[in-house]
């Protein structure tokens, strides 16, 4: 087998020292192969942002190592592009200028018209050509995220990291963008890593799903291979036996995780036997108490 594009070797990450030490991720071993679409399903506080930041190089592991094509990652590099949930567009630039900022940085030697053509190509790819002169304030959430996708793709990364890219969007826009990202991804089959808290999004988009355990000292859960033919169709999937099987087994795994974390309750508290009185109709409330 060829060298994986990303490899985690016994990686742990903690913040603080001594009494204040909180271990976020514990003993992570993971290989991401060239050209695959991996989804990591994680929940609030499970350390998924730390995980993705170790792949970009913004955070370094406390123990173990993270390798990019066999070499340890020392810092951020344009070959590993990232899309954030909050779009991170510069509000005083138009769509075109936001994309141009990245392109000019990566390809400073290109002639001006070649850069221009390149920028327009990617804006077209995310269907934003009519809005290319608009500023982020005038764009909907979906359009903003398209802009940030265009910006990342225009720098031609080997690895596309997505940290809950669609988390802030409504269901309909979310569905549409999932399909668009898949279409763009299928066109050149870059390696993609999607961090999400939505199991269905993971199943629809990825080749492989790995859940991240919730809470401190998160480790990776069992991996689930999604062997559904591409292109995928949401409606057709719902009746696909493999889809049902894999979805049910992932959800069962998560339900069982949730049950383990259930809170203590039922202290046999008694509820006073009282009838509610609607405010405004309670003028004789004091009489009742007196009697």
């Amino acid at each position: 087998m060829s060298t994986p594009i990303i490899e985690f070797r016994n990686v742990s990450k903690w913040y603080g020292e001594g009494d204040n030490k909180t271990e976020v991720l514990s003993n992570i071993n993971l290989k991401i192969e060239e050209g695959e679409f991996l989804a990591i399903v994680g929940f609030t506080g499970s350390g998924k942002t730390t995980l993705v930041n170790m792949m970009t190089g913004l955070v370094s592991p406390s123990e173990g190592e993270v390798l990019y094509r066999g070499e340890p990652i020392t810092g951020p590099a344009p070959e590993r592009g990232i899309i954030f949930q909050n779009y991170s567009l510069l509000p005083w630039f138009t769509v075109y200028q936001n994309v141009a900022l990245a392109v000019n940085e990566i390809y400073p030697d290109w002639p001006k018209d070649k850069r221009d053509e390149h920028i327009r190509k990617f804006i077209e790819m995310v269907n934003l050509t009519p809005a290319s002169e608009k500023r982020p304030k005038e764009l909907s959430g979906g359009m903003k995220q398209r802009t940030s996708i265009a910006r990342v793709l225009a720098t031609d990364p080997d690895l596309l990291l997505m940290d809950e890219p669609l988390g802030a969007l409504d269901a309909l826009t979310r569905g549409n963008l999932q399909e668009e990202i898949l279409k763009i991804w299928s066109a050149n089959r870059r390696t993609a890593v999607l961090i999400t808290n939505d199991v269905d999004e993971g199943i629809f988009m990825a080749d492989r799903i790995i859940p991240l355990e919730p809470g401190e000292k998160s480790g990776l859960g069992p991996e689930y291979k999604i062997e559904l033919a591409r292109p995928r169709n949401k409606k057709a999937l719902n009746t696909d036996p493999h889809f049902k099987k894999v979805r049910t087994s992932i959800l069962n795994y998560l339900v069982q995780l949730g049950e383990a974390a259930k809170l203590e309750r039922n202290q046999d508290l008694a509820l006073p036997d009282l009838e509610p009185i609607q405010p405004g109709t309670r003028s004789f409330g004091w009489l009742r108490r007196a009697s």
Binding site: L269, L274, P279
Partner: peptide, 14 residues
């Protein structure tokens, strides 16, 4: 608001 007839303890119990 809805249990103006209740005592302090009853309110807290609810």
């Amino acid at each position: 608001q809805v249990f103006p007839q209740a005592s302090k303890k009853e309110l807290k119990d609810i």
